[in-house]
């Protein structure tokens, strides 16, 4: 149990007395795993990810990240926690008023990195996602696939122990989807734990790792080396 990075212990979540968004979920993600979480809209995937980021807290049960109960973290510790987690979203969520370079540098700046490190690390990850020639562009000047690669670069530049990708390919065409999946696999190969949510069967099948299937707030299947089934 000591190598588990994320642990959900009988976690339930209710929004304003409605039906449970999460219903007594038990989940254990170990260091270095690549977990795909699949399910229909409203199955509870996003709620689950938000709890990992301490954006939401369980109504019942407990969420432990690196053995720390998120509910017992102070504001500052939540900020510290987020600096250890890289996040990628369906709608990219880049800072539009900052250039590609600045978006990536921002993640390092908030972590208090020195200028010399930033000047080395940012071009390095831009190379990893193949965008070194777009460093001075603004997000709005890039294609969807390119923006998502910037978002991934921003997520991994802090060398997170965990990368969370919430429908990262939801807005992308098949070619860009393939590229993003390849980048995520490469990051996982380098030792980062990846938690991915998706609707896309092709994505799950090409990753080929552990697949957790959710429905109505419950985990209904959990196959290592599984396939997409709904």
């Amino acid at each position: 149990m000591s190598d588990s990075l994320i642990r959900f212990d009988k976690v339930s979540k209710f929004y304003n007395g409605g039906p449970a968004a999460l219903d007594a979920v038990d989940l254990d993600v170990k260091h270095g795993e690549f977990v795909s979480i699949v399910g229909h809209s409203g199955a509870g995937k996003s709620t689950l990810l938000k709890m990992i980021l301490a954006e939401l807290y369980p109504s019942e049960g407990a969420v432990l990240i690196d053995m720390d109960d998120t509910q017992h973290l102070s504001k500052g510790e939540v900020t510290q926690l987020r600096r250890k987690i890289g996040t990628v979203f369906q709608n990219f969520r880049l800072i539009d008023s900052k250039t590609v370079y600045e978006n990536i540098a921002f993640a390092l700046e908030v972590a208090g990195m020195g200028d010399e490190e930033i000047e080395v690390d940012v071009p390095h990850v831009l190379g990893l996602v193949d965008l070194h020639d777009k460093a001075e562009h603004f997000p709005k000047e890039l294609s969807g696939g390119e923006q998502q690669r910037v978002a991934i670069a921003r997520a991994i530049v802090i060398q997170p122990s965990l990368l969370i990708a919430d429908e990262p390919t939801g807005n992308l065409d098949p070619i860009n989807t393939y590229e993003v999946v390849q980048i995520l696999k490469k990051i996982n190969d380098l030792g980062t734990t990846v938690v991915l949510t998706t609707h896309n069967k092709g994505v799950v099948d090409s990753v080929g790792g552990r697949v957790v299937t959710m429905d109505a707030g419950k985990i209904v299947r959990d196959d290592s080396g599984g396939q997409y089934m709904l």
Binding site: K75, T79, R82, R83, T87, R93, L94, E109, I158
Partner: peptide, 18 residues
């Protein structure tokens, strides 16, 4: 007009003062 950016900055781990 920047409220989305503020949210993103916080998700990336920026402290309130930052």
């Amino acid at each position: 007009t920047n409220r989305d950016e503020i949210e993103v900055m916080q998700l990336v781990g920026a402290s309130n003062w930052f």
